[in-house]
Design a protein around this nucleic acid. Structure first.
Lengths: 243, 243
DNA sequence: TTTGCCGGATTGTCCGACAATGATACGAGC
DNA sequence: GCTCGTATCATTGTCGGACAATCCGGCAAA
């Protein structure tokens, strides 16, 4: 038989405090927007020193469970904003040596069904937002920077139109990772802008008319175009993404 | 014209320190496994107090950029483990009132292409792992707890077989969110286990034989079965997930 | 080679303190 | 009565220093 023992678990106080507060937030005992007691008060309640409480707060803060509303002292409970947690995912993927191909493949899988679903679930307001985003891309002949932001914004609008939070959050890290290479494509490939604008136009009309399969097909082409863009811009698909 | 001004940004020292260290990790100046200097030394270098450094370290730690190897004092650089960051995503989704339907829809979109891609990209080792996971599910007639873990493990094996980190990481939060309701299904629906075992069997053979479209089709049915399971178990798809 | 022991290094936690700045109450002026 | 400046208080950001626990590395003993 094995003489293996489990390691004896030791949790420092700052972790226990963080867990205790975090648990209350997750179980909604502390609700969004509610203000946390001051640090000294927390220290008193937990029976630890204020420094210890502060370390716990830093952890909860970085998890997005707490935030300080601009120019306010007291901390308040918040839901983790999508960009923040997506940024965490992106960082993780970067550190795990993810390649351009992997990101592109994920987009291939995810985006067409999202577009299709958006065509079915979109509200009038979603259409307005989508139109605005697409128009913003077509209007600006400005820097690649701006163009990239507009492109990803169109993706975001489409995902929002699905009214499925999970899909939006799954997509967000991909967009963040896409941005740098997309910038290169727009810079180096002359026809990129017009191809993207065309795709936007087709996506818009498909989603407006609620045509699921058409929306899906156009998104497939749009993503396929990205691959073409990588080739034209001389970006190796096997390239490991870097910051 | 607008009289809007950007708020003047004030960053506390602990954020600056965290950013400075985090930036070195992301740019690989500090490489994985490398040990960080002691807190007192960091405090000296940054010209701040040790408490300030500690607050910064807590943030990096919770982002998974730093870890303490078991029973070691010094902190070392690490890549964020998938489970940790997936847990962050799951938490965020929970707090954003995600419903069973949303998770299920995401699975519908994501899993079939993953299975298909796995059929194409799987290595011999992947097949072994998949077989083992599937066998573990079939063998154990034990508690629902264990069965759920085996089921999700099969999903993980399939995702790993794609050799695409992005897909694995995109899938992980869904599995975490799926687990509780899956437990209920296995408990309440008598035929659930055999249906799942059947699906595993079909997925295994499809992926072994490298048949992409068949793998995809079987995964589609597998996920569709979950929906049926929800209905049979009396779980409302519109239900907001809770901890 | 393993075991026992020791000193130094490092972390977890505490105490106490202080300046800067939000929050709040209050009175002055329109 | 309402806005505005001001005084007061509350709270955070940061600091200095301290101490026990424990991990690390080396060295001697078995």
């Amino acid at each position: 038989m094995s003489v293996e023992f489990d390691q004896i678990p030791f949790e420092p106080a700052y972790r226990k405090v963080a867990d205790a507060i975090g648990e209350r937030i997750l179980t909604r005992v502390l609700r969004e927007g509610e203000r946390l007691p001051p640090e000294t008060e927390l220290a008193r309640q937990f029976g630890v020193h204020r420094s210890t409480v502060r370390e716990a707060l830093r952890e909860l803060q970085s998890r997005g469970l707490l935030e300080r509303r601009t120019g306010s002292k007291r901390m308040s409970v918040s839901r983790p904003p999508h960009e923040r947690i997506a940024a965490g995912v992106s960082q993780a993927l970067l550190l795990h040596d993810v390649t351009v191909r992997e990101v592109w493949q994920a987009l291939t899988i995810l985006e067409p069904p999202i577009a299709g679903s958006a065509a079915l679930a979109r509200s009038a307001q979603d259409l307005l937002a989508l139109d605005a985003a697409a128009a913003a891309f077509s209007a600006r002949r400005a820097g690649a920077e701006e163009a990239v932001r507009c492109t990803t914004e169109v993706f975001r609008c489409i995902a929002r139109a699905t009214h499925n939070t999970v899909l939006g959050l799954a997509q967000e890290p991909l967009l963040q990772l896409l941005e740098p290479s997309l910038r290169v494509i727009i810079d180096k490939v002359p026809q990129a802008r017009s191809r993207i604008a065309l795709a936007h136009e087709q996506l818009r009309t498909s989603i407006h008319s609620g045509d699921e399969s058409q929306a899906r097909r156009w998104m497939e082409r749009h993503i396929a175009d990205f691959r073409r863009g990588y080739e034209l811009a001389g970006i190796d698909l096997g390239l490991v993404l870097t910051l």
